[in-house]
């Protein structure tokens, strides 16, 4: 265990932990967009900036992304100094210029007292903040279907060569993890469309309810050693089957007891 100081308070933290984890455990609210427990931190959104210093730094201070900074003994962290708040406001102003139509960004900016941005607004800017949460979750899944394509201001998240990704299995992990709800998907008529591709949804053989995509079920059965028969019925019908089986077992047990 390591002792660090968060806003002057001594806090115990594990050795391999990041500063953000320790801050969150203390109940201090720091806004983040790209941080999620399921993926490795990458410091893309820059909103978790904090000020750090140490006793032997002779008054020198440094601003770091707390999600990427490992805890060190005797580290002094300040989460809400005027400079840190100013930094966060500047980052939000840049986001407002890039993603003017994103409700998530607008709400976050409003919480920090920002309603307008001094930077040039991209009028048709989309909601993507280039945090790579979607590509990181896709890599964690083992699919590696999407990544950043093109360079500079033309950079977008898409399949290889900006084509529909062939390795995508339509699991929607990227759409659910996206902090600004940028990734669009649609389920209709037993088909799911995402990233310009169409997937067949599995249909419950008893009630006809749609569950996950066939590609996802096949991926699970191949990589996680689950039989395909698990995916044939929906959860409601499986529950009813369980009740029927258990009911039969109770009747059999009663007959044996007689």
């Amino acid at each position: 265990m390591v002792t660090i100081y968060i806003n002057g308070k001594a806090v115990q933290a594990k050795e391999d932990e990041m500063v953000l984890t320790a801050i969150r455990r203390e109940g201090i609210n720091i806004p983040t967009l790209c941080n999620h427990d399921a993926i490795e931190p990458c410091g893309a959104c820059r909103l978790c900036m904090v000020e750090i210093t140490k006793k032997d730094w002779n008054g020198w201070k440094k601003h770091v992304t707390s999600c990427l900074y490992p805890v060190e003994p005797e580290l002094m962290v300040s989460t809400h100094t005027p400079q840190v708040l100013e930094l966060r406001r500047t980052i939000l102003e840049l986001y407002l210029a890039r993603n003017p139509n994103s409700s998530v960004i607008q709400k976050l900016a409003e919480e920090h007292g920002i309603t307008s941005t001094p930077y040039e607004i991209i009028p048709d800017g989309d909601n993507c903040i280039m945090c790579y949460a979607c590509t990181r979750i896709c890599d964690a899944l083992g699919c590696h279907a999407i990544s950043a394509v093109e360079r500079g201001h033309e950079k977008v998240i898409a399949g290889p060569l900006n084509q529909p990704p062939i390795d995508c299995i339509g699991c929607l992990s990227c759409a659910h993890i996206c902090p600004t709800n940028f990734i669009e998907w649609k389920d209709s008529d037993g088909r799911r469309s995402i990233w310009g591709r169409e997937f067949e949804l599995l249909t419950c053989k008893t009630c006809g309810k749609k569950t996950i995509t066939r590609d996802f079920a096949e991926y699970l059965s191949k990589n996680r050693d689950l039989p395909m028969s698990y995916f044939e019925t929906c959860d409601d019908c499986k529950r009813l089957d369980t009740a029927k089986t258990m009911g039969r077992l109770v009747v059999m047990a009663a007959e044996v007891a007689k």
């Binding site: 427990d37 599995l202 996802f216 929906c234 959860d235």
Partner: peptide, 23 residues
């Protein structure tokens, strides 16, 4: 279930043979 790590891909809901992971 650790909700902080869950991304709602619904793999568990589809995989449970007893239908006991729920949305």
């Amino acid at each position: 279930l650790n909700l902080g790590r869950c991304v709602k891909c619904r793999a568990c809901v589809a995989a449970c043979p007893f239908g006991c992971a729920l949305i």
